[in-house]
Amino acid sequence: MKTPHNTFKQAMADGRTQIGLWAALASPYSTELLAGVGYDWLLIDGEHAPNDVRSVLGQLQAVASAQLALGDARSHPVVRVPLGTGEAGTAIIKQYLDIGAQTLLVPMVDTPEQAAQVVAACRYAPAGVRGMGSALSRASRWQTHTQYVHEANEQVCVLVQAETVTAMAHLDAMAATPGVDGVFIGPADLSASMGYPGNAAHPEVQAVIEQGIARILKAGKAPGILATSEAQARKWLAAGARFVAVGADTMLLASGARELLGKYKTDPAAAAPADRSY
């Protein structure tokens, strides 16, 4: 059997926009539900959500079950690891790849050297330093994909996050790093790094993001972002962002619950929080 083709990576290489949703509830049940809704990709969050390798595995299996039911209509799982550089980051990346993740989003990458470390961690030798353990791994279907170690490098999609002033200073070189498929701009952390914590809508932050999207496109790579309002999502799509998360499951659940409660009682505690315009 041939190693599964990474449809998300192919779509971005073709310049096709991919609309996604953040999955932060850390539940295979909710992730399976979302995988059948029609989003192009789901972000399974291992950085800020209460996920670990085992819970991410359960969600990858849940997405796979949606594939059995829906075929290509299911979402592609993108896994955000908790860290990606240094020895610990390399070990964590290896685990997430071995359980079957093909697309990784790596937070807090500030330099092209760090981006290159992430790429190396995602590649088998001689192209990288990923440990050889396919006989034990779900990624190869326990060697049912007989050419996995020869085909895996081409099917792994590497997305790095630029979310600090330092990262934006190195953005051109980071985006140009061989093996980096896309660069995700993190508005919340970037706004804090720029001195505007909790205010990603600040004009200076918005300008840096817009310039960043243009710089990533100029390098021939795919820009990505999370937007929690329709206005922001449409703004970044118009600017050229190629993979855009347009919401989060936690926020959808909270807003839906508040809306339903509001039909039956008026309670200040049920009011929606202010939009942070991520």
Rank of each mutant, 00 (worst) to 15 (best):
M168G: 03
H170P: 02
V165L: 10
Q211A: 15
R215N: 11
A219T: 12
A207K: 14
Q147P: 10
L136T: 15
K221L: 03
E210Y: 07
T166F: 01
A207C: 14
V129S: 13
A169V: 14
Q206L: 08
A176Y: 04
C157I: 03
E204I: 12
Y196R: 04
G179V: 06
S140A: 14
A175F: 06
G198W: 01
H145A: 11
V208C: 09
G224W: 02
C157V: 06
V208F: 11
A207I: 09
R141Q: 15
E163Q: 02
G186C: 01
M194P: 10
R141E: 15
G182E: 09
P178V: 02
G212M: 03
N199I: 12
H150W: 14
I216H: 01
V180E: 00
G212H: 02
A219Y: 09
N199L: 15
F184S: 01
S140P: 08
M168W: 05
V129K: 13
H150P: 03
A200F: 01
N153L: 06
M132W: 13
I185P: 07
G131P: 10
A214M: 13
V158W: 05
S193V: 02
Q161G: 00
V180A: 04
L136W: 12
N199D: 15
P178H: 05
G212P: 02
V165T: 15
N153V: 00
Q161D: 05
I209H: 04
R130T: 01
Y148M: 07
V158P: 04
E151C: 00
Y196L: 06
D181N: 15
I185K: 05
K218Y: 09
Q143T: 12
E163L: 02
C157K: 02
S140R: 04
D172E: 14
A207V: 12
G133F: 08
V156P: 06
L171D: 14
A139D: 07
I185N: 07
K221R: 11
N199F: 11
H150R: 14
I225N: 03
Q211V: 14
S140N: 10
V160F: 00
A167Y: 11
Y148H: 06
V205F: 08
V160G: 02
E151D: 12
V165R: 11
A222H: 10
Q155G: 08
A192S: 12
Y148D: 01
R138G: 11
A135T: 11
E151M: 03
V129P: 09
V165D: 11
I209V: 11
T144C: 13
Y148R: 05
M174H: 10
V205R: 01
A167R: 09
M132I: 13
W142P: 05
V183I: 09
A188V: 08
L136F: 14
G131M: 07
I216Y: 07
R141D: 15
A152E: 11
A201Y: 08
V129R: 14
I225C: 03
A167W: 04
L217F: 05
M132R: 15
L217G: 12
